[in-house]
Design a protein around this nucleic acid. Structure first.
Lengths: 197, 197
DNA sequence: AGTCACCTTTACCGATCTGTACACCTTTCG
DNA sequence: CGAAAGGTGTACAGATCGGTAAAGGTGACT
């Protein structure tokens, strides 16, 4: 009972924070829109930051699960899954309710590096990078860690630009740029991308 | 007098907002840290949003000027200037005071598409894209608009990841990924990146 | 010297913020 | 049927939010 109620609360809070921002949304609004009284909310979470952390944990879990499963469905061969990541990304960016990355927003509103919220956002990005790295590894990339980071830069950029300008254009461009980077990472060291001066 | 005082105020507010966030910083704090009384601030700006808009305009001007001049110094040939953009970016990302992109933060805290602040952030990104497009055009890229967008995705992603994780790694990776994308954009259509299904 | 325009300080407004005290109601168990 | 227990809404506290009114200072120009 209490556990599932709590999950519902976090799920609702997630949506409200995502659409309205963390600082801009007050606990009164959370209580009003979730139907859970403020007193009860503070029974489950000692502070607002704790509630925000819980929503971020849920978001991290939901998003990564969604991405992994979507990629599994879209492509079965390891070499194709890297591209499939950007097909899944395309789907997300062009969704009607798309409002940017929740963790980017969280890190924008809680800049203090000591804040657990900032740390949670950083951790989410690290986990995504790790996922890409594993995909690149299975696909047999020359340098999986490097390719993963390159792809993450493109995907993060696409998320931001999609939020500010044309989402379709950004999503298409991300897919195209990713293809170029992926191809280059499998070529027999034709273009040494990491040549320093 | 009034004009330069105003500029000083905006300059100081820019720094304070950049380090503390827009919603988190109150006007009392702006008044206290700038030494300008709240009454005087509201003589120059009717609302807090107006002050924020002024800081964003200043930031846009300063950043684009800095980037253009830095690229001019770092490379004289058009074909090399595209790479130089990422050398300049590297310098910025690894600065001690780097705290992410101010416009990303602004758009994160003011998500409403009707907000002039959101629009200002979008405009900034559009202007940067235009600058990259002009560079790509002068360098003789096959598809300047597409290359510019690809490079912007990488650069935006690097700004975000640098803010959350290792800045040096992100900056290096951005430079490497940019080189790959630039090289590919000058090859005689060997890898058609924009091939749709 | 006197006047005027501007800037500052101080105090304040109503609204909203996070977080809490307390009385109430429901549920469960004896 | 009654009583202990725990979740519920109301109402509130203390602080801070954006924004303003009014009075006191300060300097420049005539």
């Amino acid at each position: 009972m209490s556990a599932s109620k709590r999950d519902e609360l976090v799920q609702s809070a997630l949506k409200i924070f995502y659409e309205g921002g963390f600082n801009a949304i007050g606990m009164d609004r959370i209580a009003a829109e979730t139907g859970v009284s403020k007193t009860s909310i503070y029974k489950h979470f000692r502070t607002k930051d704790d509630l925000i952390l819980a929503t971020l944990r849920l978001r991290d879990e939901q998003f990564r699960n969604w991405l992994v499963r979507r990629v599994e469905v879209l492509a079965s061969e390891p070499s194709l899954r890297l591209v499939a990541v950007f097909d899944a990304l395309h789907e997300w960016l062009t969704e009607p309710g798309f409002r940017g990355c929740m963790f980017v927003k969280a890190s924008a509103e809680f800049q203090d590096r000591a804040s657990p919220i900032h740390a949670a956002a950083a951790e989410h990005k690290r986990l995504l990078q790790l996922y890409l790295e594993k995909l690149a590894e299975k696909a047999g990339a020359r340098n999986p860690a490097e390719l993963a980071l390159h792809l993450q830069l493109v995907s993060e950029g696409a998320i931001n630009i999609a939020h500010l300008n044309d989402a379709h254009r950004a999503a298409d461009a991300a897919r195209a740029a990713a293809r170029v980077l992926i191809n280059s990472a499998f070529l027999p060291a034709a273009t040494p991308a990491n040549s320093n001066d």
